[in-house]
Design a protein around this nucleic acid. Structure first.
Lengths: 383, 383
DNA sequence: GTGAAAGCGCTAACAG
DNA sequence: CTGTTAGCGCTTTCAC
């Protein structure tokens, strides 16, 4: 008697035929109303809606999917991390997916996962999705067309976020792969400040995003005819940035560093400061992402803000279009804006005469365990 | 035309009956094999698997769900933020959900969303899920039993993460609601260091998690017979922590602050330092979460680490049990471990004699324009 | 504008 | 151990 809402209760959930009966129409008409089809009189529509409301009717999605062949859901493959970038992207994707009337299925690829991305995509295919979003993929054996083809016979549209397409599908779209441009902006900012060259603290090179940033940086230096210093590679973590910082601190040629993300930049800065160097007076640092705390660390971080929401929205719009218009040409992509946030971790290089080097060495040798907060950092140099 | 199962393009997707035919068995046997049911001879099983492989067969989930009444998927409602806590929890949930053989459907509640959590849950119900996880819920009108009951007639098990149960369902489980204990640990750490009392920079009080932490803090002070200072409320952001810090910096009674998350703690520290105070010499600060950069900011942050993965795993295990054993008693919950990470942002209070106060004022007035940003923030502003 | 039939591909009882 | 017979609740034709 009690009409449960859910589908799995002891009391049977109402079906469209129950609604039809109550409204005095055919079951098909109920279906018409719920699908917003035309050719239903306003009067009938009202009666149906009323009956549905009374019964607490709710369409059974499984039946819908089975009958129509469309699941009305989109799957997203993410790297199971809580890293700010990937997490932001995922949130952006969810928003847009829901707005477009689709449901979202999520699957992670843990780094080191044997099945990897192929397994994740496969699981999505098993679940049944109309389209797939691959967020910030990383390189893996078998991920692309290689042996992985076993399970990656996709025949639904795919959107790759933050990387060139790694998968072979009938329709592969990409979005948010403009990291090189952003890296260019960051690097150029440093060059414009007067630095002779810029060092790069890269992300793990298995990540497309990391390689993109590195390429943007390298290309910029080359274009300006500057030397390209050796790259230090981190793993996105502040810890790895810290380690890189200790290394970089020993090299007195380093006056500017472009870090591939903010976490590493923060770790890097800490190492530099502990080594007796001042940021930005001795070394300028630019980060990437603009994480929430970026403006509040010491010193506030100059960084490149990634337009996650814009990227997700733009990409999804095209994916949905591809899903719903299989034969039509894909929508054109529009590049996301580049947004350099200049704060206080960047400044002109120290005076170019020898003293700089001397001062630095001195600082380093005395650079014991300063900290908690650098009582020195204060009375600033550049006015 | 009739066949397209969404996943298949030109060639119709193979169905179990196709596999059956090729393997020379009945369709039901194929079903048995794929469901790992017993009573199938190894020989038959092998033949079926082989045929399936050859055809590229893949079960149709919609049909499965329709026939069985179980969707084999779990829905999770999250706040659409990339905040470290919620994001970590989500990743943890995904991992466990997949491990248990379920699929994950995700829906966000944007803060300020009119439909709010009720809408999110409703959407999950529409999609069809066997259980729901509500991650870090916040207070909303209509969220609980109130008027929201319209759409929140749940009859599937629910797991609430990081809060006492806000929803009325046949079976509501909770996990990760031990924030008060952790807050207790943090507060006591400060007290043990010799601080007379501890101030609290709280999270937005609409969040259960924020209220929990506040309660734990308050209870601890009370238990120790210490005065309970007024609470400053932030919004989890470093910016709000910064604002709170400027306020707190004016009060010379403040020697220890427990911030409800690390982001706010970082903003807070920045404000204190800009005001000429030293952390931890003048003021100790404890954060909450242990975000990745916590160990690398200046000074490295003493904080409470939340065991997100453990919480997710423990909670999901119980949720899945409840889904699969509707009548059985729910599994008992085990409290997550408390993990205080002591780094360098906490220390004994400044000497308790009057000088402390004087020294502080002096420090503040001489504070000058430390730090690049806000050339104003530092000196004199507040006299 | 509306309705009646016929499946979608699978699982769920029951037979053998 | 294996097969048969019914549906699950909806969307599709195609009539009316």
């Amino acid at each position: 008697m009690t009409r449960g809402t859910g589908r799995s209760g002891n009391t049977a959930a109402p079906r469209s035929v129950d609604v039809a009966r109550l409204a005095g129409v055919s079951q098909k008409t109920v279906s018409r109303v719920f699908n917003d089809e035309q050719y239903v009189s306003a009067e009938v529509r009202r009666r149906v809606l009323e009956a549905a409301e009374e019964l607490g009717y709710r369409r059974n999605n499984a039946a819908r999917a089975l009958a129509s062949g469309r699941t009305r859901s989109i799957g997203v493959v993410t790297l199971g991390t809580a890293l700010y970038g990937p997490a932001s992207l995922l949130m952006g994707v969810e928003r847009v997916v829901r707005d477009t009337g689709y449901a979202l299925r999520v699957v992670n690829t843990m780094e080191g996962d044997p099945a990897g991305m192929a397994g994740a995509v496969d699981s999505l295919l098993d679940q049944g999705v109309d389209g797939i979003v691959i967020s910030e993929p990383i390189d893996e054996e078998g991920a692309a067309g290689g042996d992985g083809s076993t399970s990656l016979r996709l025949d639904i549209p795919v959107l790759v976020l933050g990387a060139p397409s790694p998968a072979a599908a009938p329709l592969v779209l990409t979005a948010g792969d403009g990291a090189d441009l952003m890296a260019h902006t960051a690097t150029e900012h440093l060059l414009n400040l007067g630095h002779l060259t810029v060092h790069h603290l890269a992300g793990p090179q298995r990540w497309f995003a990391a390689r993109d940033r590195l390429e943007g940086w390298r290309a910029t230096l080359t274009a300006h005819g500057r030397p390209v210093p050796p790259v230090v590679e981190g793993d996105w973590s502040a810890a790895s940035g810290y380690r890189a910082g200790r290394e970089l601190a020993e090299n007195s040629d380093v006056t500017a560093v472009f870090a591939a993300n903010d976490d590493m930049a923060i770790g890097l800065i800490r190492a530099l400061v502990e080594a007796g160097l001042r940021v930005p007076e001795d070394v300028s640092v630019v980060g990437f992402d603009d994480i929430p705390v970026a403006a509040y660390v010491t010193p506030p971080l100059t960084t490149v803000r990634q337009p996650f929401d814009a990227v997700a929205q733009e990409g999804l719009k095209r994916l949905v279009h591809a899903i719903e218009n299989p034969s039509a040409a894909p929508l054109p992509s529009s590049p996301p804006p580049v947004d350099l946030i200049v704060r206080s971790s960047t400044a002109p290089p120290p005076s170019r005469t020898t003293p700089a080097r001397g001062g630095r060495t001195a600082a380093r040798s005395r650079g014991g365990a300063h900290h908690p907060p650098l009582p020195n950092g204060g009375p600033s140099t550049h006015h």
